[in-house]
Design a protein around this nucleic acid. Structure first.
Lengths: 351, 351
DNA sequence: TTGAAAGCGCTAACAA
DNA sequence: TTGTTAGCGCTTTCAA
């Protein structure tokens, strides 16, 4: 910058103005500066700029560093030889955030979190942005606690964790409730079984809650617990859960459920295969539903009825929240729930 | 940092050491510093750090700001109501780069390029990274010219543009040549028609070149030009091109081609529909092929034979190139061509 | 093992 | 419209 100033015969302040507020510099001068900059290959240092102005013009995103297990499994199921079709949860959030960030003139810095420590990627991100979003279970609460005292952080798709953070979730309970009602009201099903996940998973629990509430509202017996729980909510576990449900009914001399509702699509897809193997036709003999809206759900036969998560909107909304928070750092913490939508396809008897 | 130093009774130099080279500080001291940092909510400033050390630990990516028309069209074709299934070209590159960057300890800064000007997003990215990748036709050559004199830039999937840049392309000609040979050698087809794109598109032209070479090698007449060219290579244009080809043959009193090869999957998908509408069965009456390997290609019926681009590897390789260039700034410019693979499915008679 | 001090390249008053 | 001058918060010799 000093070189550019010297070469064009102005002060560094003028060079700075040319880049920050071009109108405030006489056209003639401006062009002289720009020419010199071009000749010298001058690229303004974002670091120096950020240091002097205390803003970076960058928003961040931290997401888990393990490859999304759901998506990987889906890829394997669909077509193992390439992964063009499979979009990860994080890919979609990135896309949403990038678009929204661009609208507001921000760039997006992304990093999957390695393990902690003073020099973790999270720390790096935090030090280089004006604010950032964190996907649930990515960053230790203790780190977030420290960081969120210095800059805006929004927590995505998880428990708030720290109560002064802004936070964004999808309407898990609402979605599952609506889907359950659809089964009861529109298809007349009454013997429903719910397959949940780890009790520690807020998503899975919220979905079960929705199921339970719908049962209650419909006058069915309100279950205290999911009929089956799985640890990882994988396809294999879904298949096993379906079989267990069948075996259990048989052992009791009872009819099998009229519908199996799974806390995610992965398990539902696994169940579809297991049920076919046992000679049950879906949806004729039994209905099956999932949750998430993964691509695999419309490749399998029958196509899978599900609740679609608005993942991209999650990213966009995260940026909106950050931008707003940057404008008004003192406002009360915001907590938003994004609406989901039903994807009614063949496996429930629609489509 | 001064506060942390004061609170823990050391100098700022020691605080710095705690974060940069923890081993060089006595354990006792280190923990005192860390405790103070925690209490104060200290987050090291990436800007200051970058300014002082002249490195950012961040790599960048600039990609076009228009939504990828191919992918958007694919989404519309597959299922207009959501976009979970559709991965954009840029999404895949981002994913590839992020993974590779993480392996090398870098974070990734992404920005779609708005229009130029001194304050463009490109300039912002350039000023905040140690090096970055540019997707073809994203950044004006003049800007790149200036920027690339200060930091490593790798050009992706396009003409090199500036000859001292590292640059990465996929083997368009090789892929189309191999696919054409497959049609000729394995399926015994000889009357082939090629539908290309804008002569300005290096990708489309390279693909046509591969086609032409394969024709020559097979002893067929070597076409000087594609049988049809389209401007945007969309589905609609592909459909129109297929019809034009049919009409042309009919007008000439000739048989229709035995195969139509399209310069991308979009057009091929459009053609599939047009051919079905004309009562032609694919691949029985005529074979159809595309290029790219978009997700839609395996959802349509018949599934589409294509050449798959290794897009994610493009991103990973870009990072490798940048890292290498950062290590050895003076080395000669590198130019790599990534191999593609055939995706033989139903529309050519395989699968 | 720790401290002192000189920048890194820019922005933002304030002056002229 | 342009120039002067303090820092911004850190890293990095060089000494101690």
């Amino acid at each position: 910058m000093y070189d550019v100033a010297e070469r064009s015969g102005v002060s560094i302040a003028t060079v700075s103005r040319v880049y920050r507020t071009p109108e405030s510099v006489r056209v003639q001068t401006r062009e002289r500066v720009l020419a010199a900059a071009r000749e010298l290959g001058y690229v303004p240092s974002g670091n120096a700029r950020g240091l002097a102005s205390r803003t970076t013009g960058v928003l961040g995103l931290c997401f888990p560093d393990y490859a999304d297990p759901d998506a990987e499994t889906a890829a394997a199921g669909a077509d193992a030889d390439d992964d063009h079709a499979v979009m990860l949860y994080s890919d979609q959030i990135i896309r949403g955030m990038e678009r929204a960030a661009r609208r507001h003139g921000y760039a997006l810095l992304i990093a999957a979190s390695l393990d902690g420590g003073p020099e973790s990627l999270v720390a790096k991100v935090a030090g280089r942005v004006d604010g950032f979003a964190v996907l649930a279970q990515t960053v230790p609460t203790s780190d977030l606690d420290v960081i969120s005292r210095r800059l805006p952080v929004v927590m995505l798709a998880g428990p708030r964790g720290i109560d002064h953070l802004d936070h964004l979730v999808v309407a898990n309970a609402d979605g599952q409730r609506a889907l359950t009602r659809h089964l009861v009201d529109d298809h007349g099903l009454r013997r429903l079984a719910f397959v949940g996940g780890d009790p520690e998973s807020p998503d899975a629990e919220a979905r079960f809650r929705g199921f339970r509430e719908a049962c209650r509202d419909a006058g069915l017996t309100e279950p205290a617990e999911p009929d089956v729980r799985t640890a990882m909510m994988t396809q294999a576990e879904g298949a096993r859960a379906a079989e267990a449900l069948l075996d259990r009914a048989q052992a009791a001399g009872a009819d099998h459920p009229e519908a199996m509702l799974f806390a995610n699509d992965q398990m539902a897809v696994g169940a579809l295969q297991a049920l076919a193997a046992r000679g049950l036709r879906v949806p004729r003999d039994i209905a099956v539903t999932g949750f998430d809206g993964i691509p695999l759900g419309r490749i399998v036969r029958p196509t899978l009825t599900t609740v679609r998560q608005p993942i991209r909107q999650l990213g966009e909304q995260a940026v909106e929240l950050l931008v707003q928070r940057l404008r008004d750092p003192a406002g009360p913490p915001v907590s938003l729930e994004l609406p989901v939508s039903l994807g009614l396809r063949e496996s429930c008897g629609c489509g």
